[in-house]
Deep mutational scan, measured.
Amino acid sequence: DHIPWITAVLPTVIICVMVFCLILWKW
């Protein structure tokens, strides 16, 4: 059976995008 890697990667991607947007917003 396949491991849904997207389910494991998606939260990390969302957190990175939120942090990236927060850094851009504070500049």
Rank of each mutant, 00 (worst) to 15 (best):
H2Y: 05
M18V: 02
F20N: 06
K26P: 14
F20D: 10
V17W: 08
W27A: 08
T12C: 00
D1E: 03
V19D: 03
I23T: 10
V13I: 02
V9D: 01
L22V: 00
H2L: 06
W27I: 10
M18P: 07
C21N: 06
I6D: 02
L10D: 07
L22F: 13
I14A: 08
V19K: 10
C21G: 14
W25F: 08
I23H: 05
V17K: 13
A8I: 10
H2V: 08
D1C: 01
L10H: 03
T7E: 02
I3P: 07
C16R: 08
P4Y: 05
I14K: 05
F20V: 11
D1M: 01
T7I: 08
C16D: 10
P11N: 13
D1L: 00
L10A: 15
V13P: 04
L24V: 09
T12M: 11
F20S: 05
L24I: 10
T12N: 01
A8N: 00
W27H: 08
P4L: 04
W27C: 05
V9E: 03
L22N: 01
I3E: 14
H2G: 15
I23Y: 14
V17A: 11
V17Y: 14
V13E: 07
I6F: 02
C16Y: 03
T7L: 14
W25H: 07
A8R: 08
C16H: 14
A8G: 02
I15V: 11
L22M: 01
V13L: 07
L24H: 14
T7S: 03
V9P: 06
A8Q: 00
H2D: 02
C21L: 03
I15Q: 01
W27S: 09
W5K: 15
I15E: 02
M18I: 05
I14V: 04
I6Q: 13
P4N: 12
C16A: 07
L10T: 11
I23F: 04
C16M: 02
I15M: 06
I6R: 01
L24Y: 07
W27D: 15
I3G: 12
P11R: 05
I15K: 03
A8E: 11
L24G: 15
L10I: 05
F20K: 14
V13T: 00
L22D: 11
T7C: 04
I23R: 08
V19H: 15
P11S: 10
P11K: 09
M18E: 12
V13Y: 03
C21A: 10
I14C: 10
L24P: 06
V17F: 07
K26Y: 13
K26C: 11
L24R: 12
I23V: 03
T12H: 12
T12F: 07
W5F: 08
T12S: 04
H2R: 04
W25M: 14
P11V: 11
L22K: 12
W5Q: 13
C16T: 01
P4C: 14
V9H: 15
V19L: 08
V13W: 09
I14E: 12
C21D: 15
C16W: 04
C21H: 10
I23G: 14
M18T: 06
K26D: 12
W25K: 12
T7Q: 00
W25C: 02
C16N: 15
L10V: 05
W5G: 02
I3H: 14
M18G: 10
V13D: 02
D1P: 00
H2K: 04
C21P: 11
P11A: 08
W5E: 03
V13G: 01
I3T: 12
V17E: 09
